[in-house]
Simulated scan of single mutants.
Amino acid sequence: MRRLVALALIALAPACSKSEDKPLPPPLDGQLEPVPNPHGTVTPLPDPEMQEGSVGRAPRRITVAQLDTSIRTVVGRGWECPANAPSSCVDLADVAPSLGKADFANVSTENTEANLVFAKFLEDGARDVCMAQATAELTVTDPNARVLTRTVPTLTGTAGNLTQLSDAQVTELLTYLSTRFWGAPLSGEELPKWKNFFTQAAARAETIKKRDQAFAAMCIAMMTDSRFLTY
């Protein structure tokens, strides 16, 4: 029995060898030969709808040095105490360690986490910087020399009544400010919300006879927005 099985295997061996050595048929005209993927397995990108509309790395918070440069560039002045400021005044240099700046003695890596401490100090700084700049612009007659109120023709007298600004003028102001602070103009559903915010701030400012506070409120809101702090 074993002899019969051995003979059968010997008889089948040439047939298997012939079938394995048989060449493949030539490719048809217009048919490309398959090429193996040199990159191996590629992980697909996540669905934007599952990532709040974005794909890629998470936003990063700017450093203290970048924050200082951004405030000076956008608002026109730095976060610093004036010469005649009271001793309780706190500027960016005072709170820089709390905002994550490394001292290279105890901390060698800057912390760029957008935590509650950062948000609290930034809100205080934004209030000081924005109020000072908005107040200073009340006495500047040349619109091109102003920063927060550049698109408003005048800020004095009855002609400067903020509640009398047309819808087009409010849109122009918000488009200018959002582009200045965030690098992109307000649009879509956000624009009416910010217009309503400015309208309320303007009405309040006219009631208390302090027009600078309307622009300071816009400045504070845009500076504390995540679009000003992340990239």
Rank of each mutant, 00 (worst) to 15 (best):
V75G: 02
G56W: 06
A96F: 02
W79T: 04
T63S: 15
V42I: 15
P36Q: 05
E52K: 15
P34S: 05
T43S: 08
L24K: 07
A96D: 01
T63D: 05
P86L: 05
P34C: 04
K22S: 05
G30D: 10
V42W: 08
P36W: 04
I62H: 01
G56S: 07
D47A: 05
A96W: 01
E33T: 10
P97D: 10
T43F: 07
L99Q: 04
R77N: 01
R61A: 06
G53Y: 10
Q66R: 04
R57K: 11
V74Y: 01
N37D: 11
G56D: 08
A58Y: 12
F104K: 14
I71Y: 00
T41A: 15
D91L: 09
P27V: 11
L92N: 03
L99S: 03
V107E: 11
P23I: 07
K101W: 01
A83F: 09
T112C: 04
G78R: 02
R77I: 02
N84S: 12
N106C: 07
P59C: 06
P48K: 10
L32N: 11
D21S: 12
T63W: 02
N106V: 09
R61G: 06
N111P: 01
P36R: 03
N37I: 07
R57H: 13
T73A: 03
L92Y: 02
E49P: 00
Q66P: 04
I71W: 04
S87G: 10
P23L: 09
G100Y: 11
V107N: 09
S87H: 09
L67Y: 00
V75E: 03
A105N: 13
S88H: 08
P86Q: 12
N111F: 09
E20F: 06
E80S: 08
P25T: 05
